[in-house]
Amino acid sequence: MRLHPFTSLTAAGSTAVITTAAASLPLSLTVIAGAAFLAAAGGAGRRMAPAAAGILVPLVLSLFILHGLFFPEGTSVLAQWGPARVTAEGLRFALERTAQLSASVLVLLLCSFTISVPDLVAALSARGVHARFAFVLASTLTLLPAISTRLARIRQAQEARGLVITGGVFRRLAAFRWQAIPLVLSLVEEAGTRAAALEARGFGNSGARTSYREVPDPPLQRRLRPVLLLAAAAAIAVRLWQPTAGA
């Protein structure tokens, strides 16, 4: 079944909120397993894995080094080297935070890797969300891959002209100028052309718009979304009511 973009956004957002609010290790681990399973089943796993690793590996390492070695509040010391003390409390804190953050990150990544950007943009403009936000979103997502290749091409061109990135801060600053200025100049120039084209087509004007793209929104999903949002709000309310409950 194909999900409406709003349904997957709502589902991912509510899951992230509920996991954060519940702050329970078993729930976080369940969500991680669920997200991994859905990614693998939906065929997004191969594309998602590098992205998730790039975000989570530094985060997890940083948390474990920080709380595993230095946790002044910890009492049960497992090992000690000079000022660094490995405490059970610190490790537990790092583990809980890691699970909680990984769950949220994986769920949100799963959503953004499975959502169809044209559908999302069409759905956003159909719902009266300003066409401008949809434009910024779609334009960024399509510009991004193009920029990396252009940056590589500019670097090759400058290297052909004798650019060698070495030495101190000023040399590096000069090298940055050599590469960034052509990039920014061409991007700004193109943006100016696009602005004129969009303006000529009435982009800046207010008023209703029609779209060629119809995104089906089954009634079941339409009813599911408020339920998910209510569940997230309820989770926040419960947590604020009993700030110290749970793990």
Partner: peptide, 22 residues
């Protein structure tokens, strides 16, 4: 803020976002 920006500024926002991200 978004609805008040002129189009020439609006089309630069994706460029800025891409620069931030890259």
């Amino acid at each position: 803020v978004l609805p008040t920006l002129p189009v020439s500024t609006l089309v630069l926002i994706p460029v800025a976002l891409v620069l931030n991200i890259v």
